[in-house]
Amino acid sequence: MITVENITKSYGSGAGENRVLKGISTTIGDGEYAVILGASGSGKSTFLNVVSGLEKADSGSVKYDGTDITELSDKQLTKFRRENIGFIFQQYYLLPNMTVEKNVRMGADLAGSKDWKEIINAVGLGDKLRSYPSELSGGEQQRVSVARALAKKPKILFLDEPTGALDEATGRQVLDYIGKLHDQLGFTVIMITHNQNIADMADTVIRMNSGTVTEVYHNAERKTAYEIGW
């Protein structure tokens, strides 16, 4: 269970101060599929970075089952991320000089897990183990980054606009893999998007606008990536 309480964050100071998060509170349960929905510039990425411990908030707390990560040292935060968290970004940030397999091992080695090949198979790239990122399409690269994140067995998967750079068909495919693996492995998903329709895939939708949460609602039924509009 993730409990976020009254998070604030600003960039700059004085007249140029930009209040990006203006007191955000919310909770996300274990194994939940949560989507953060909002227009560009509304503070979604900043919020995600604070919740995942990549960035420090100015005030407020982020508790994982009672542990407040805003009070952890950098070293403890690193350990926390190592044991709990996976990331997927809009840009895939794969290492260009390494094969698909080695990229995925970046995640797998952290958890000491040996099943990276199964995970690569699970995102449909079993025949691309020896390929380099530049030889893959955007969708395939994003699937590698999904495999890389999941190979470290995270309890929570953070995704910042994972389909932002993909066309509709490819985007659906990536979301479908993520949805299936979520159902199968039971990790928590916290995904940012500005696409209203993608929210239909979630249990919980948190709508943000200019640094505040304007609405939280739960879908009675989740749609699959192929059922939603685009």
Partner: peptide, 14 residues
């Protein structure tokens, strides 16, 4: 720089 940042995000130690 990017590789290092990515590794840190994933939880590799300094």
């Amino acid at each position: 720089a990017k590789t290092a940042a990515m590794m840190r995000i994933f939880g590799y130690e300094d």
